[in-house]
Nucleic acid binder design. Structure first.
Length: 554
RNA sequence: GCGCCUGUAGCUCAGCUGGAUAGAGCAACGGACUUCUAAUCCGUAGGUCGCAGGUUCGAAUCCUGCCAGGCGUACCA
């Protein structure tokens, strides 16, 4: 609808220019807005004000010149007014909205999709939690955001790949192996001190038992180093399998799991460091190797190879990101916890130093989740190994509620997640508010079948009966779905879709309470069913993008 | 100290990249089930958009300086 009006305005502008009324043909972009107040019409544009400077004319005059030349061939406008400092406000006839309904039914699951991304290859990397323990709530938020964003961008015509980066190399894996081995020793009655820097959680002991079941006492006979190695690999596999299962339960599946260790095994880390050395971007100082990130605006250079010869996390990350672009991605989006924000400048530097534009990397910083139960903070300590896992949350509140709540806030805003509230089936819980719309409509459709209401050739019925205020509101809201998706993709912000759905749901519930769908009039009933079925499709499409189910009954 | 982020109704948050009279939900108060699901709806009340300047026709939104909070500031990840 917006683009339709936009075209009409551009035509009017050109015509005004041709008539010599406007001195310049250099027009700013015509933006169509939805005004806040109903008295200001359905849509508005500020083009007259925007053009004032260029045209050297007062906005009012420009607006008049435009309005006088508006060609409304399809008769969509009921009123066009100039208001305030130079806004042009458009009011639409109810009939102008009817094509939206047809479009929704025709496009069905594709309504809201676009080719905006032009097949641009995008990789979204998210979660990428270390395989040293189960996923917790914070990872859940990242998972929900990353997965939904991937859905939304894919729906918007981007060629999206989801990737999980496995940090299966380095010291923490060693520590993991040692932690498991120590618990394993304890299971064989060999008490040993369990250091603070080992992983404390109960899951370590569980894994140790699995090792025992698998290997019996045989690990006691091999050199400790080998035993720890074995435990490390065993534990990583096991934990990773758990992570995979939890994510699947959460509705998240990755296209690729990328191993950090493989970067070393394939020599990619050495290679990239050598390349950078040749370019003079990696140099030696104090027996360590430094990456010259200051050349790209970072506040200090960063170590890539430590004095002891071990590479840092950054080293493999340079190789990893370079590899992403080698694999053909035009854009890379990383979803990180906000506490890693200090890492962005050096990562951007890495991208630029390896031949890409820093704009090809976007980092979405996801803020902390505060876990509450009935308003009281839930004590969490990763150190002591006491924390609520993502799986706990899914088991307690359900996948739909969890995912939706994670998406009701901008990623840059901290999120209070109240377990008591999330499992409540009341109006305090927005997910049910939205899902209820889908279920209610399903129920109406069931009833309409019972009453043997003829839905054949419903596409051809006369929609003139849809003229109630609430009906027009609903059509208008539904017309805004595609642009909401687009904005969400552009801003990489899935929460817009959640807010949109709550808004549309509200409009439906209002309508439902005021008007009956199944009436005595066959015509009216068929028209309203057509409307309501469209709403159901939009709700379903939106929920699907968020990874939330659209139930037939509740 | 320096850097990044945040500050909007009592609470939790939106605010379409500068538009008109500031928007939801919750909480509070008052109403609506003989109806297609009350997991719903209707109404009332609630604001110096942290503070102070600046930019312009116009600022919650942009620039500067303060104030408050969070995070970061490793040869950890």
């Amino acid at each position: 609808m917006k683009t339709t009006i936009q075209k009409i305005i551009i035509t009017a502008l050109k015509s005004a220019r041709a008539d010599g009324v406007l001195p310049s043909s250099d027009f700013p972009e015509v933006l169509i807005d939805t005004p806040k107040h109903e008295s200001q019409g359905d849509y508005s544009t500020n083009i007259a004000m925007m053009a004032a400077a260029n045209q050297k004319m007062p906005p009012g005059k420009i607006a008049q010149a435009i309005v006088a030349r508006i060609k409304d061939d399809d008769g969509i406008f009921s009123d066009v007014q100039i208001a305030g400092p130079g806004f042009i406000n458009f009011s639409l006839n109810p009939a102008a909205w009817y094509p939206i309904l047809h479009r929704i039914h025709r496009q069905d699951r594709q309504y809201g999709a676009s080719g905006e991304g032009n097949g641009c290859r995008v990789q979204v990397e998210f979660v990428s939690s270390n395989p040293t323990g189960p996923l917790h709530v914070g990872h859940g938020r990242g998972a929900a955001i990353g997965d939904s964003l991937a859905n939304i961008m894919s729906f918007s015509g981007f060629d999206v790949q989801r990737e999980y980066y496995i940090n299966d190399s380095g010291r923490q894996i060693q520590t993991l192996g040692r932690s498991v081995f120590l618990r394993y020793l304890a299971l064989h009655g060999r008490e040993a001190a369990f250091p603070d820097d080992c992983y404390q959680g109960d899951y370590i002991a569980t894994i140790a038992e699995a090792v025992k079941a698998d290997k019996g006492e045989s690990l006691l006979q091999v050199p400790e180093e080998d035993a720890i190695m074995y435990c490390a690999r065993f534990a990583t596999d096991q934990i990773l399998r758990g992570i995979r299962d939890d994510l699947k339960l959460f509705g998240v599946e990755f296209d690729r799991w990328y191993s950090e260790q493989s970067l070393y095994d394939d020599g990619k880390v050495d290679q990239i460091l050598e390349d950078l050395r040749t370019k003079g971007l990696v140099y030696k100082k104090d027996d360590a190797s430094w990456f010259r990130t200051t050349a790209y605006g970072d506040e200090k250079d960063r170590v890539v190879i430590r004095k002891n010869g071990q590479t840092t996390y950054l080293a493999s990350d340079i190789a990893y990101h370079h590899d992403k672009y080698l694999r053909g991605f035009d854009r890379v989006i990383d979803v990180w916890g906000a506490d890693h924000h200090g890492y962005i400048p050096r990562m951007k530097a890495a991208v630029e130093a390896t031949g890409q534009s820093p704009d090809q990397l976007d980092v979405i910083l996801v803020r902390l989740v505060n876990l509450l139960r009935g308003g009281e903070p839930v004590a969490m300590s990763t150190r002591a190994g006491k924390f609520i896992t993502l799986k706990d949350v899914i088991d307690e509140v359900g996948r739909d509620a969890a995912r939706f709540i994670f998406l009701t806030r901008h990623h840059d805003s901290p999120l209070d997640f109240d377990l008591a509230l999330a499992s409540k089936k009341t109006n305090e819980n927005p997910v049910y508010y939205v899902q209820y719309v889908h279920a209610r409509i399903a129920s109406i459709l069931l009833k309409s079948r019972e009453r043997k209401i003829d839905l054949s050739s419903i596409d051809e019925i006369d929609l003139a009966c849809l003229s109630a205020k609430e009906e027009v509101t609903l059509m208008k809201r539904m017309a805004a779905f595609p642009e909401t998706i687009l904005r969400s993709a552009e801003q990489m912000a899935p929460h817009h879709v959640a807010f949109y759905l709550m808004d549309l749901a509200g409009a439906f519930h209002t309508y439902y309470n005021k008007h009956r769908i199944l009436t005595d009039s066959t015509e009216k009933t068929r028209g309203r069913l057509y409307l309501v079925m469209a709403i159901q499709k939009v709700i379903r499409n939106g929920l699907t993008l968020l990874g939330v189910s659209a139930p037939e009954r509740m």
